[in-house]
């Protein structure tokens, strides 16, 4: 009859386990098979598994998917694959069955304004300059780089052309007015 120490001492070492199995290595052990994790994935709760092990666990209880360690919610789309350096030498884990879920690249969060439409360069900004005091308002709107100035009339329409004409007339009037002020 086997004794508690039977597996450790005399007989064959289990499953060809590497003898260089130090305590430090246990940090990277799969929580299911207790071996060094292969095709590792990590859950949102931070627990490490082999993908095949976790996949089988999720298949065992499809209606109640929880982390085998802490029982937090878990799922195929809620684990992150872990790619260690040099692991590319092995076969691509995604070619194996069951496929390991791919990593997801989310775009960095846009740190811009919280109020849409208040950003510079989106056209909406220039509008306020068009209705300033007489000559300066004209200056502002006319020299406003001509880009996407929001107005009621679409570019190229007769009304638009008329507006531009009027702008130019006012511009010349303004220039003459300033000239008059300078020489007066």
């Amino acid at each position: 009859m086997a004794t508690p120490t039977g597996a450790e001492g005399g007989t064959t070492p289990p499953g060809g386990a590497d003898s260089a199995d130090t305590d430090a290595g246990t940090f990277y052990e799969c929580n299911i098979c207790l071996d060094t994790a292969r095709d590792p994935v990590v859950s949102m709760c931070g627990h490490l598994f082999c993908w095949p092990c976790l996949h089988q666990w999720l298949e065992t209880r499809p209606q109640k998917q929880m982390c085998p360690v802490c029982k937090a919610g878990i799922g195929k789309d809620k684990v992150i694959p872990v790619y260690g350096r040099g692991s590319n030498n092995q076969q691509d884990p995604r070619e194996k069955l069951p496929p390991r879920p791919a990593g997801q690249r989310s775009e960095p969060e846009n740190q811009g304004g919280g109020f849409p439409g208040f950003g510079f360069g989106d056209g909406g900004f220039h509008m306020s300059f068009g209705i300033g005091a007489f000559p300066f308002g004209i200056f502002a709107s006319t020299f406003n780089f001509n880009d996407g100035r929001p107005g009621p009339a679409p570019p190229g329409s007769p009304q638009n052309r008329e507006e531009q004409f009027l702008s130019k007339v006012f511009l010349w009037v303004a220039i003459l007015f300033i000239f008059y002020l300078l020489i007066a």
Binding site: P4, A7, E8, P14, G15, A17, C33, L34, D35
Partner: peptide
């Protein structure tokens, strides 16, 4: 088997 061996 492997699990039991390790747990052991």
């Amino acid at each position: 088997i492997q699990r039991i061996q390790r747990e052991f």
